[in-house]
């Protein structure tokens, strides 16, 4: 069951990831990215890293891809004609694919993690409850600072984008 699910999810992730690259329509590419992230989240669930899976869905699929979609729709780009191939980019692509292939092959051939290390590793931070406790006790200060970060980010967006009328009397 575990292996079957892993295979399905892995193939799903890879196929949709290829879809991100080859799709000429930016909206479709973003949707493929979303599906690919869902696949990765599924893989995390398979590893019992529920929190990580949940955060991935929430942050990447929920927030970031939605942001991409907004921007893609705002810009309303049309897929351009296929660019002509120049020598140097083609060489770079071949080299990149070769290096990635080499990396995968060497990882499969030699990438062995020491077994007992994995067996002994405690699954700290894997539960949502522990995470929440830590967030609001040990790491309360960074949480508060991030509140201020969001505040100035919001102010910045207003300052840099809003049209101000009648600013003459603000001196």
């Amino acid at each position: 069951m575990g292996t079957f699910l892993f295979n399905v999810l892995a193939i799903f992730t890879l196929v949709t990831a290829v879809g991100v690259v080859v799709n000429r329509n930016a909206v479709n590419a973003s949707m493929c990215l979303l599906l690919s992230l869902v696949g990765v989240a599924g893989l995390f669930v398979g590893l019992q890293a529920y929190l990580l899976a949940f955060l991935l869905l929430l942050v990447y699929a929920g927030a970031i891809v939605a942001l991409f979609l907004f921007i893609v729709m705002l810009l309303d780009t049309k897929g351009d004609a296929r660019p002509t191939l120049h020598k140097l980019p083609v060489a770079a692509r071949v080299l990149a694919v070769g290096l990635v292939g080499l990396g995968v092959v060497s990882f499969v051939a030699q990438g062995k993690l020491p077994e007992p290390a994995i067996g002994n590793a405690p699954a700290v931070g894997a539960t949502l409850k522990l995470y929440a406790y830590q967030l609001f006790s040990t790491y309360l200060l960074p949480v508060q600072i991030l509140g201020f970060l969001l505040l100035i980010a919001m102010l910045g967006v207003i300052v840099l984008s809003k049209r101000f009328e009648g600013l003459e009397d603000i001196k």
Binding site: Y139, L141, P142, I145, L146, F148, L149, I152, A153, L155, G156, V159, L160
Partner: peptide, 23 residues
């Protein structure tokens, strides 16, 4: 290092806004 990164981001984001303040 967590604290370092969080405050570094806060100050950097503040500086992004300040740098482009003469919009």
């Amino acid at each position: 290092l967590l604290m370092l990164f969080v405050v570094l981001e806060t100050l950097t984001i503040g500086l992004y806004i300040l740098v482009s303040y003469h919009r």
